[in-house]
Nucleic acid binder design. Sequence first.
DNA 1: TATTGTGATTGGTCGGACCACCCGACCAAT
DNA 2: ATTGGTCGGGTGGTCCGACCAATCACAATA
Lengths: 258, 258
Amino acid sequence: MESTPKTKTMYNNPALKPLPRTRLHEGIVSQLTNNILSGQYRAGEKLPPERDLAEGLGVNRGTVREALKKLEMLGLVEIRHGDGVYVLNYLETGTLELLPALIRSGDTINLEILKGLLDLRRIILPDVALQAARNRSAEDLADLERMIFHDDLIGINDRDMAIYRLIARSSKNISFLIVLNFFNNSGLVAEFLTLYFADAANIMRTTRFYHEIYGAIRDREPEKAKLIMHDLLVYAERKTIEALTGGMSANDRTGMEL
Amino acid sequence: MESTPKTKTMYNNPALKPLPRTRLHEGIVSQLTNNILSGQYRAGEKLPPERDLAEGLGVNRGTVREALKKLEMLGLVEIRHGDGVYVLNYLETGTLELLPALIRSGDTINLEILKGLLDLRRIILPDVALQAARNRSAEDLADLERMIFHDDLIGINDRDMAIYRLIARSSKNISFLIVLNFFNNSGLVAEFLTLYFADAANIMRTTRFYHEIYGAIRDREPEKAKLIMHDLLVYAERKTIEALTGGMSANDRTGMEL
DNA sequence: TATTGTGATTGGTCGGACCACCCGACCAAT
DNA sequence: ATTGGTCGGGTGGTCCGACCAATCACAATA
């Protein structure tokens, strides 16, 4: 399954920015999303017709349609054939994928929402660890052991996410895995993880966590695994918030924009 | 905000199927989704080009593009400009919105996945209730009181969802509200709720729950609210599973497809 | 007053064209 | 042999203009 990069040696240059990736309709999505989240378009209102939006944005109608399609999937609007596009109350219909946009709405990090999201994670993941200790297979344990103790070729961020993924897989509950995907792929974790692992003390704390959670899962001690996960999350949350509120003045904030 | 249906009298006929809703691209989405989830298209493989898909399906390319766009948002495929559409491993990239499709994959209800989803709900909602009891405002309490004791015009299903929504709102954590939206709007709850409320005993049990949770939130007793929510969920899960596994032979299963 | 019908508005789909990007093959320079 | 440049074909991204289909507002009608 892995796409083996042949024999090409990976140059270890972390200073390269990933890519600015154009894609026109994505820009329209973020623009309309902000317009809705900021209250310019209120719930119940009707958006301008696709044709008008296209003209106003200077793009093709089909491009606008793709953007509206995405807004619909985010739970921001409802498209009614023959009628129009209605703005919904995202508090009632918004999906999880909307949260990253909410956190970044207004060109600044919304700490309150971020903390709420971390609360959610702290509620879920300990029970994932619990069920992992209860339901893990021998193969799960072997993979976990390999990832924690014998894999040094992978980046620290990717390794961290991979370990969580293995724990979720061990729980045998697909829902847990999917929820974890959200935390991992939402871009938020990857963003803040770099900040978190910039402190060597945090790396040591997390490494200790790896060893402890592995032991609890190996020995099938659900309650212990739950507690270990909970403690780590409390620590990581505190450190992440500190890093965000502390050195947030004029530091480099590469990758902070959408 | 509500779109008042004017003077048109609502015919109270629960036997009517909502509607087959044409919407061509939706059909393509479900078809391709099933093809991927069933393993016909494996992770890493490349889907046929948009032009070929359009020809094969007998539709316009733009329609195929809208469908692919949705598959991309579900985390099922990755679209690479100039390259092609690649199937992803949905266990690594799938979103929550994918779970309903997973549960229904194969024309039958996947009980294992459904139970896993109910587990997730039982992990989250009690803590939502806890924080609701802790953070509710006077207005939250008033709305909750009105909805529970003084609103008899609303359907039992809608009333139930509205009450949960008010509880989530009381927690002051938007993430909780969004997660609840998923449970409510995924169609799963609405589907099984009807089954659940078909039993008068369940209605009584849930009504008792309303009163108890209201008291705990009113008196600001977080741990009590958590326990009350937990107990109700355990009960409701059991009853729902029983109803599904019990009378599942040749009963009417309207609205089971998509 | 209630119903019907008609036209305007708007989303849904269509066909075809061109642009932007990726890839592999081939060639040129080192 | 390796590196870098060029080019052509395949694929997604966007555009244009047109028509179909659903909805709504309102006039015409019974």
